[in-house]
Amino acid sequence: MDVVLQQLPALLGVVIGALGSYLALVRSDQARFRREEAARWEERRLAVYSDYARSVKKTVTVTYRVAAALGCGTHPDPLTLDEAKPLLAEANEGRDPAGEALLMLGSVDVVEKARSWVVTAMEMERFVREGRQDTEAWQALLDRQRAGREGYYTAVREDLGLPPGHSARWRLPVTVPAPDQR
């Protein structure tokens, strides 16, 4: 019995060490799991944010093309409204599921900025469906759309913890037609 009592502190040290090792391993695994899970959700949110932006941009691009046909825009590939109607319908059909996913996974700020952007895109669509030829009104819609898109991307970057990005306002060189093309 005396030998057991002498070995008891060493035995307790081994048990406490093993228990401590086990607890440290469990905590480490839990922390790794939480980090991996957060990364998976962040990847899903990025995919949802990208899909939504792509779906809104489809509508915007088609309206650019129709506005060019109406004489309000400068898109190099103009479309008549009749040619554009199936493309607008397709864009709207794609935007609905992307919007639902955005509502489920998006932050409050991102969803609000997305709403602002898409409302302007819908106004652009209404503009071209009505066949309006008001260049100033179209330019105002373009400016609002660009600001809405920029606001959306800024909110997405903030939500995902990314650094600020480019405003996507490209300055295109002004081309002067050659004398024989005037």
Rank of each mutant, 00 (worst) to 15 (best):
D2G: 11
V4G: 06
Q7W: 11
Q7N: 10
Q7F: 13
L8N: 05
A10R: 15
L11N: 02
L11Q: 11
G13P: 01
V14E: 01
V15C: 04
I16Q: 00
L19P: 01
L19S: 10
G20T: 09
Y22A: 00
Y22V: 09
A24L: 08
L25V: 03
L25D: 06
V26M: 05
V26R: 11
V26L: 05
R27E: 07
S28G: 06
D29W: 09
A31I: 01
R32P: 01
F33W: 14
F33E: 11
F33H: 14
R34Q: 05
R35C: 02
A39N: 14
A39I: 12
A39W: 15
W41L: 15
R45T: 00
L46S: 04
L46C: 00
A47R: 11
V48C: 07
D51E: 15
Y52L: 11
Y52Q: 04
S55T: 06
S55N: 04
K58E: 00
K58W: 01
V60T: 10
R65Q: 11
R65N: 04
G71T: 04
G71P: 07
G71H: 09
C72G: 07
T74S: 14
H75G: 12
D77L: 13
D77C: 02
D77T: 14
P78Y: 09
L79K: 09
L81A: 00
D82H: 09
E83W: 04
A84Y: 08
A84P: 11
P86E: 07
L87S: 04
L87Y: 08
E90D: 15
E90F: 05
R95V: 01
R95Q: 10
P97H: 01
P97M: 02
P97Y: 05
A98F: 00
G99H: 07
A101D: 02
M104A: 14
L105T: 09
L105C: 00
G106L: 03
S107A: 06
D109R: 13
V110Y: 07
V110L: 03
E112T: 13
K113E: 08
A114I: 03
S116Q: 15
W117D: 04
W117G: 00
W117H: 12
T120R: 11
M122E: 07
M122V: 06
E123M: 10
E123R: 15
M124P: 02
R126A: 05
V128M: 03
V128Y: 03
E130I: 09
R132T: 10
A137S: 12
A137M: 09
L141V: 05
L142Y: 06
L142V: 05
D143W: 02
Q145D: 06
A147S: 07
A147C: 01
A147T: 12
G148M: 00
R149F: 13
E150C: 07
E150N: 11
G151K: 04
Y152A: 07
Y153E: 12
A155I: 08
V156K: 10
R157D: 07
L160R: 08
L160H: 10
L160M: 08
G161E: 09
P163C: 01
P163Y: 05
R169C: 01
W170D: 14
P173A: 01
V174T: 05
T175G: 03
V176G: 02
P177V: 09
P177Q: 06
P177H: 15
A178F: 06
P179R: 08
D180M: 06
D180G: 13
Q181C: 02
